Computed example of a mutant assay.
Amino acid sequence: MKAKSVTSHDVAKLAGVSRSTVSLVLNGSNAVSLSEETKERVREAARILGYRPNSAALMLRKGRTDTIGLVITETRSIRVDAYIPILHYAIADVLKEAGYSLLLETFERKKGVNPYTDLVFSHRIDGLMVLSPHVEDKDLHALLDSGFPVVQIGSIGHPEELSVTTCTSDSTTEAVRHIVDLGHRNIGSVPFSPSGFSATDSRLEELRQELLKSGIMLDADCIEFGDFSAESGYNATLRLMKRQPRLTAIFAGNDTIALGVIGALNSLGLSVPGDVSVVGYDDLPFSGFISPPLTTVKMNADHQGRLAADLMVKRLKGETIPQKRLVLPSQVVLRASTAKARMQASDL
């Protein structure tokens, strides 16, 4: 037998107040002055009964949903990328404090279908946050042109965008200099996703250009793309080392991929860093506690998420936003996964 749903009448009865009082308290109305004791009785009754106001009715009355959408553009990454939960928690925490709920949605691109239509044009959300937007996303460009509140974690270069990004170029320069100074010349890379993903492509290009300054070519034979998961990093490294067994250093696209890189090297009987040094990106919470602790480029997911959420709150409240594009610094964290390059027969 289906359980009876809880109504505002049930809350009013338990709290000993009228239904109109319940409505005023739970809808946050200040139309009538009520004592804090009365408000708390109503809230406590609602908590006990598990009652929540009808969100659709609230939206119709207030003209807003008090809900922000967060779109993850790469669905596969949700299951395996440890950066995303940190970012998600930070965003949700800031929005909750400001009175907003966060709706997490995945991105599904189909020919002829606008992936933002259901969320935005069905009036389910007041604003949209997009993680790792694609520069070629014409629908996102159009959404920004429309003036709908959007905050990006990443950038597509739209003149009116609100975005938070992390600059890795200086840290990549430092990380490459560190590896080169250790005597490494045979260097490979396992990016965190297939090519075509903007963050992957830009990070790989930064690495390629920095190595070139030291006279080291990072050609296609020294690159094997991962697919977001540690498992994909593992398999990519096996393929890479079969093709390039002389490599003494590998730049992993992120720390999750680096886990797979280290695991694959160990399975091949190679030690890290004795035989091959490994560098990651992100500095996730586990990075300093794996064996060996990982040298990585620190990117603060929590700070990035909080700044992005704060931008959204300011946008919705119509507050002045002095800087529309926030660019955060990164830094190299040196740990035990990098060491001097091993001597090879050709070096003797």
Results as ranks from 00 to 15, higher is better:
321 I>F: 10
147 G>R: 06
344 Q>H: 13
235 N>S: 11
76 R>A: 11
186 N>V: 03
308 A>I: 02
44 E>R: 15
54 N>H: 13
20 S>E: 13
60 L>N: 07
45 A>K: 09
156 I>N: 10
171 S>I: 04
132 S>V: 01
112 G>C: 09
181 D>I: 00
164 V>S: 06
257 I>V: 14
8 S>T: 04
187 I>V: 10
204 L>R: 14
166 T>Q: 07
296 T>C: 12
199 A>T: 10
341 A>L: 10
263 G>R: 14
134 H>D: 11
182 L>E: 03
22 V>W: 00
339 A>V: 01
202 S>L: 12
8 S>M: 13
148 F>V: 12
232 S>M: 04
202 S>E: 09
191 P>R: 01
42 V>L: 09
95 L>K: 07
87 L>W: 05
198 S>Q: 09
305 G>N: 10
261 V>Y: 13
144 L>Q: 04
70 L>K: 09
274 G>D: 09
163 S>F: 03
296 T>I: 08
86 I>L: 15
264 A>D: 01
14 L>T: 03
7 T>Y: 04
281 Y>R: 14
308 A>T: 02
45 A>L: 03
43 R>Y: 02
166 T>G: 07
72 I>A: 07
90 A>I: 01
240 L>C: 02
161 E>N: 12
217 M>H: 05
293 P>L: 07
338 T>F: 11
173 T>L: 13
263 G>I: 07
330 S>F: 01
83 Y>P: 00
126 D>F: 06
82 A>S: 14
177 R>V: 01
65 T>L: 09
343 M>G: 08
254 N>Y: 12
3 A>Y: 01
71 V>K: 12
103 L>V: 08
207 L>D: 00
149 P>T: 07
290 I>F: 14
10 D>K: 10
225 F>I: 02
93 D>M: 06
221 D>H: 10
3 A>M: 13
175 A>C: 08
306 R>G: 15
86 I>G: 04
171 S>E: 11
143 L>Y: 08
172 T>H: 04
94 V>L: 10
178 H>L: 13
146 S>W: 06
182 L>V: 01
132 S>D: 11
341 A>R: 13
303 H>W: 12
110 K>M: 08
68 I>D: 02
81 D>E: 09
279 V>P: 05
268 L>H: 00
191 P>M: 03
335 R>I: 00
180 V>R: 08
266 N>E: 14
51 Y>M: 14
325 R>W: 03
